[in-house]
């Protein structure tokens, strides 16, 4: 005879031990602190005046918060030959251009791979899956030759065009379309005489907004955070990221302020879109 099940609100109450609950809570709190403290430390360092930054041991709170570090970052650093605003503008330009192209090409391709049954699509998708398994370094050497051949060394193109074919966002979107848009609906639209481009734009895209946003956010994050390409030498083409890494050796305050500026953009974008992104990830599974 099985033991009686506990029921609350007509739902079976799952077996949960008090000890397990406590252990999990402790684990989560400790891990959460380990994850959060460095971020917090960075945030307050950015707002600490010089005197407080040099206290031993340093405090985990700010006595007199100041904007001075941010001012330093944007005014003093401007006296160097490339102003910090130029680096920031580069990062913004590259991120937007790369993300936009990736969104257009990625969503078109995801739709075609998912809903148009052309011979060869499985092969292309298999290559895309395999590409997720290797880091980009492996292709790095030959990429260099291709850049030389295209005369792209020391230009923005290097940081933008390869991203248009980045595979993670495309993969997520294809899986999401597979899971959420039925073949029958597309077939019906085709019988009604809609062109593929129209089905893509007017039927599928509105249905997969979460995936669309996810592609946008993940691509933007990775480009925004990407370090400078090794093939860009002109100081006025380099990204904000590079500038901060260089400043970090000069001033901990200004560098922290820079890091805070840098990280707040992707974090805020993520918080706004969190629900949609998590929804998309639900269909991210890889079938073997």
């Amino acid at each position: 005879m099985a033991k009686r099940l506990r029921v609350r609100n007509h739902k079976v109450v799952l077996n949960r031990s008090k000890g397990g609950d406590a252990g999990i809570t402790i684990f989560l709190v400790l891990m959460g602190l380990a994850m959060f403290l460095p971020m917090w430390y960075l945030l307050i360092t950015a707002f600490k005046p010089l005197g407080e930054r040099n206290m031993t041991p340093p405090l985990l709170y700010v006595i007199k918060p100041t904007w001075q570090n941010f001012l330093d970052l944007f005014t003093n650093m401007n006296s160097t030959w490339v102003p910090i605003s130029r680096y920031l503008a580069n990062t913004i330009f590259i991120s937007v251009a790369a993300t936009f192209g990736c969104l257009v090409l990625g969503s078109l391709t995801a739709y075609a791979l998912s809903k148009i049954k052309f011979p060869g699509r499985n092969f292309i998708f298999a290559l895309i899956r395999y590409s997720l398994m290797i880091s980009t370094t492996v292709a790095g050497i030959t990429n260099f030759f291709i850049y030389v051949w295209l005369h792209w060394l020391d230009t923005y193109w290097i940081s933008i065009v390869p991203v248009w074919a980045s595979t993670l966002g495309l993969y997520l979107m294809k899986q999401f379309i597979d899971a959420n848009v039925s073949d029958e609906m597309i077939e019906a639209a085709r019988i009604d005489g809609a062109s593929e481009l129209r089905i893509y734009w007017q039927i599928v895209m509105p249905l997969v907004k979460p995936a669309w946003l996810t592609l946008l956010v993940t691509t933007f994050q990775s480009v925004w955070n990407a370090g400078a390409s090794g093939y860009v030498w002109s100081e006025n083409l380099k990204t904000f990221n590079t500038a901060i890494a260089n400043i970090s050796t000069v001033s901990a305050g200004a560098s922290s302020a820079g890091s805070v500026v840098m990280m707040s953009v992707p974090i805020i974008i993520f918080i706004i879109n969190q629900a949609k992104i998590v929804e998309t990830m639900g269909s991210s599974g890889m079938k073997d």
Binding site: S131, A139, W164, A165, E196
Partner: peptide
Amino acid sequence: QMKRNWAGYVMVLPFVLIFFAFTVVPVILS
């Protein structure tokens, strides 16, 4: 099948070109 679904090739072409140029071909060449 290829003729019926020609639109598919057109739609994936730009992506596939860039993907091959910067990922697939470089790995093979390496």
